[in-house]
């Protein structure tokens, strides 16, 4: 009986997550449509993201309305990139003729972009903003030694 109840609970939670995902999708549609109509270079989904952020911050939308479905989507976001990534299969001839030059350009440039962005952000933020321990995001810095040890373990 307990097992039965657990199953029902899980089905209910999955249903709620699906409804919330459908809600996020519906929320996004008018932005995508509007951006396509207005020939806006920034995609509608990114504008919808910023608008939803503002609505959450102001309190028009409550986090619990979209939290479960949203977190589910974020956990598996990489899956949604797989079909587009497999599109690289079409560029076999280009990669054969200019492959290494493209590789060098993209890799070196990406490394520079990341280093410059990361170092300037680190310099600007100082050491104040450390990775929060929990998901709730307290900005109380943890003791430096403990923190360093944890960071090293994370990248071990």
């Amino acid at each position: 009986m307990a097992c039965h109840g657990d199953l029902r609970q899980r089905a209910r939670r999955a249903g709620i997550a699906c409804l919330q995902i459908a809600g996020l999708w519906l929320f996004c549609l008018p932005f995508q449509w509007g951006c396509a109509r207005l020939h806006c270079p920034v995609p509608g989904s990114l504008i919808a993201m910023v608008v939803l952020w503002v609505m959450l911050a102001v309190g028009i939308v409550k986090e619990r309305w979209i939290g479960q479905g949203g977190d589910l989507l974020l956990r598996h976001m990489l899956l949604f990139f797989v079909p587009a990534a497999a599109g690289i299969v079409q560029y076999g001839p280009l990669l054969r003729t200019a492959g290494w030059r493209l590789g060098v350009t993209v890799a070196v440039s990406t490394a520079l972009v990341m280093a410059i962005t990361g170092l300037s952000a680190e310099a600007g933020a100082g050491r104040k903003w450390r990775a929060p321990v929990g998901a709730s995001g307290s900005d109380v810095p943890s003791p430096p030694q403990v923190n360093r040890k944890r960071e090293e373990m994370r990248h071990a």
Partner: peptide, 23 residues
């Protein structure tokens, strides 16, 4: 169907943004 889910997933990024607005 999978690529189409990228749009709601992008919108869902508002959640981490909201949780760390202050920072």
């Amino acid at each position: 169907a999978l690529s189409a889910l990228l749009a709601p997933a992008t919108v869902a990024l508002a959640l981490p943004l909201y949780r760390h607005t202050r920072l």
